[in-house]
Design a protein around this nucleic acid. Structure first.
Lengths: 141, 141
DNA sequence: TATTGTTATACTCTATAACTATA
DNA sequence: TATAGTTATAGAGTATAACAATA
């Protein structure tokens, strides 16, 4: 029916627009920290603990070869380190250095703060509802 | 207070995760069409009508010089055309070609379909609430 | 003088294919 | 044979700085 289609179109459009707003915010926030959005993402993922290249590439949705060069650049800047895996001599674990941990926290805090500012005028209920709905969407993806 | 902080953190995290999910979906959907996500975005923006380089760069949040090379590549593929602006001989309008219009529609429809699939199990009310909330966030940005 | 768009340059991001070392 | 990660290569996205043409 016409109404449902219109609502769906609005919702898809609203989600895409929100994505672009958040992408811009993410880029604007990363830049002053001297990080690209992709680098910030990588560092923040590592806040959860060290990861192997294959697992990290899966989480970031990039090829392992692309990740190799990203890690190279971050390792040169002493933000991450490759740690040999004692269980498997082919593998390594990527972990945050002290400086990398600090950068990751700064980036994470800055993102959170910017997003909170964007959602500051929502009611507690609206905030809770939004978080729940989005979490469901993420889980479904 | 502790509760509010926790909810806010969840919301910010949910928004960031949603952004990443949508980015991945956007990339996966663009690729089989032979487009990068940025190219798809550009083409979809032009569905609203021709735009000058400065305006388009503002909408896409990239520098004009970056846009020049993007438009070069799309023009080589006959997806967009540079039309001289009769009012201002410095300026040009970027417009979709017939092929570009078709590609833009295909991309737009594919995104919409994928996102609808992701939100298919939400109730009409939840869908409406989400669209309204997100539209407000976008407007505030 | 200010603005529009381009050029030149340098990085970063990314994928594909082929490779090495280990399992 | 299969898997972990790297190398080589190529193309795309991006910013900065300097520029030409026009307003």
């Amino acid at each position: 029916m016409a109404t449902k289609t219109a609502v769906d179109a609005d919702l898809a459009g609203a989600l895409v627009q929100t994505m672009h707003v958040l992408q811009d915010l993410y880029a604007e926030t990363s830049r002053p920290l001297g990080l690209t959005p992709q680098q910030a993402h990588l560092l923040c993922v590592l806040l959860g603990g060290p990861l192997g290249m294959t697992e990290l590439s899966r989480i970031l949705s990039i090829e392992r070869s692309s990740l190799t060069s990203m890690v190279d650049r971050l390792e040169r800047r002493d933000l991450v380190a490759r740690i040999p895996d004692p269980k498997d001599r082919r593998a390594c674990q990527i972990e945050l250095t002290t400086a990398g941990l600090q950068q990751a926290h700064e980036a994470h805090d800055a993102f959170t703060q910017r997003i909170e500012a964007l959602t500051a005028d929502l009611s507690s209920t609206a905030r809770r509802t939004l978080a729940t709905t989005l979490t469901g969407i993420v889980a479904r993806a």
